[in-house]
């Protein structure tokens, strides 16, 4: 009896989560440029449109470039910081940990507006690279949290053994710490990458008038009416996220990763 109730409850939640995506997936295969569900006819041409139409293709390339670079920069900021906090006793340095978590805890519009006023004042407003820096700062929280967790899981006696045998900090980092921390670097990068790919407000406020990322392109297209390409892009995004998080789960300890992430955000 309770098991039936539980299944029904999970089914309803699953339906609530999946329904909009099912309808969008259905709409994306319409033959003609109509917003109809169930779809009329079947065509995958709207998926081809993402790569064939220069506007959508450019937006896709812009989004991918932005996500690849900003996630790398976020990891580059987070890794030395997390390593330092693990290696040294320096309580005041925790302020940088706090600064790293802040952009993600505050409403996104605040970080976006801060960066907009900053780039405008500095005179770089609208330059593509400003979006990379902005996203890296906005999402630095994710690699920072996964890496902090990764460092706490390293057995210090391993490091001590290496030090006793004469390895210096650099050698220890390369031969002991880095191999152990690598899965956490990859998951931190993956989280930052997926979120950057989907991010709208920070990208819009920093470079919205000079270049279009995919979310900006979808939003602009929405204002001028409907095209099924939006639906196919949506399906592409959901599948990308599911594949990447699926891989993180496959090669890492997802429940553990999430257990630590949420407690760190408090």
């Amino acid at each position: 009896m309770t098991s039936v109730f539980r299944k029904f409850y999970f089914f309803l939640i699953g339906l609530f989560l999946a329904l909009p995506l099912i309808v969008v997936a259905g709409v994306s295969v319409n033959q003609k440029q109509t917003l109809a569900f169930p779809p009329q006819g079947f065509s995958t041409s709207w998926y081809g449109e993402i790569f064939v139409n220069p506007e959508w293709r450019n937006a896709l390339l812009a989004s991918l470039t932005l996500a690849v670079l900003s996630a790398a920069l976020a990891v580059a900021i987070a890794l030395p910081l997390a390593w330092f906090l693990w290696r040294r006793v320096a309580p005041w340095a925790n302020i940088f940990q706090l600064l790293g978590v802040a952009p993600f805890t505050l409403p996104p519009v605040i970080t976006a507006l801060g960066l907009l006023t900053f780039w405008a004042t500095a005179g770089f407003y609208g330059q593509p690279w400003t979006a990379v820096v902005s996203h890296a700062i906005f999402f630095v929280t994710l690699p920072l949290v996964t890496l902090s967790l990764g460092f706490t899981s390293i057995d210090r006696s391993l490091v001590e053994a290496a030090a006793t045998m004469g390895a210096d900090d650099r050698t220890i980092f390369r031969t002991v710490v880095l191999p152990l921390i690598l899965p956490y670097i990859v998951s931190g990068y993956a989280f930052a990458f997926v979120l950057s790919l989907n991010e709208y407000i920070v990208a819009y406020m920093t470079v919205g008038f000079t270049m279009e990322t995919l979310p900006i392109k979808i939003f602009n297209a929405l204002r001028y009416g409907y095209t099924p390409t939006m639906a196919s892009v949506t399906v592409l995004f959901v599948s990308t996220a599911a594949v990447i998080f699926g891989l993180v789960a496959r090669f890492g300890d997802l429940p553990k990763l999430l257990g630590a992430m949420a407690s760190d955000q408090k």
Partner: peptide, 23 residues
């Protein structure tokens, strides 16, 4: 479930808005 939830959480507000306005 966690992979599904993370995928939805990472979705852009633009996309969530579009999906629900379609629904």
């Amino acid at each position: 479930w966690l992979v599904a939830l993370l995928s939805i959480l990472s979705l852009s507000e633009v996309i969530i808005g579009f999906a629900w306005s379609t629904l």
